[in-house]
Computed example of a mutant assay.
Amino acid sequence: MLPDISEEELKEILIPVLQVDGSKAGEMVLIKLVDICSITTDGRHLKLDTAEGTYHMMATLDEVGEHLAPMLGLKKIDRVNYIQPSKVTYYDSLYRKIYFDETITPHSKFATIAQRYMDTVEALLGEEKDLAKS
């Protein structure tokens, strides 16, 4: 089910994609959602065609990490997790989890932290947000 979006709002939605051809091949660009003429696959990527060119959706975590993480300030904390530090409320150095809720419950959203990133997490967030030390 689509969200309640007006036609005017729909015309303004931009999505990040990777340029496939031309001098900017491999670079991230923004295209308007309404400019997409067709969507197909070329193996492991979704391929989007517009009147202006061909693009790939960012489909892998590595692509997101390379192109979006620097722009959005995302930090890698595990081989499968990037987080937005400003959204983190607490972390637990004992169980190596990062939380995003003010009140931590068994249903709270979390991301796991690899041991090798624990120093990075502590430097980013400070010991006062560590549930294991409170």
Rank of each mutant, 00 (worst) to 15 (best):
V80N: 14
D4R: 00
D42H: 03
L68E: 05
M71L: 14
A51E: 15
D21P: 00
Y99K: 02
V121Q: 10
Q115L: 10
Q115I: 09
S23I: 07
K133S: 13
V20D: 03
E27H: 10
K76G: 04
H45G: 01
I77P: 01
K32R: 15
I15W: 05
E52H: 01
F100W: 12
I104A: 11
E52V: 01
K133P: 05
L2F: 10
M58T: 06
M58R: 02
K11T: 04
K87W: 09
L10Q: 08
Y117D: 10
T103K: 15
R96F: 09
H56V: 07
L74N: 04
M71I: 15
L125R: 04
Y55V: 10
L46T: 11
M1T: 11
M1S: 13
V34A: 08
V64Q: 01
A123S: 14
T103C: 10
M57S: 12
Y117S: 13
T120P: 00
Q19V: 11
E122C: 13
E102R: 11
Q19E: 15
Q19D: 07
E66L: 04
S108N: 10
V88S: 07
I36M: 06
M57N: 01
L68H: 05
L125I: 12
S93F: 10
E66W: 00
R44W: 03
M58E: 09
K109G: 07
M58Q: 10
D130K: 05
Y55L: 08
L30I: 00
L30G: 06
L46P: 00
G126S: 10
K75C: 11
A25C: 07
L68Q: 02
G73A: 06
G22Y: 11
T103M: 13
K11V: 00
K11D: 08
E7I: 07
I98S: 09
I13A: 05
L18H: 02
A111C: 14
E63F: 02
K97Q: 14
P3T: 04
E8D: 11
H107T: 15
H56Y: 14
A69C: 06
T105V: 12
T54F: 00
T89S: 15
E7R: 05
L61C: 04
Y82M: 05
I113R: 04
S93Q: 08
K129V: 13
K97P: 05
E9N: 09
E128P: 00
E8T: 11
E66I: 00
M118D: 03
Q115C: 05
T41H: 09
G43C: 07
E9D: 14
K109F: 11
V20F: 02
I13E: 06
D35S: 14
E102D: 15
I39Y: 03
L61I: 14
L131H: 10
D62P: 00
S93W: 08
G53E: 04
D21V: 01
I15N: 02
N81E: 06
Y95C: 01
R116I: 12
F110V: 01
P3W: 08
I13P: 02
N81C: 12
L30K: 03
Q84L: 13
S6D: 08
L30Y: 14
Y55N: 06
V20L: 12
G22V: 10
E27G: 00
A114M: 04
I83L: 13
G22P: 08
L68N: 03
S108L: 06
L61R: 02
L124M: 15
D78L: 00
E127N: 09
S134N: 12
M118N: 03
T120H: 11
Q84C: 12
A123R: 13
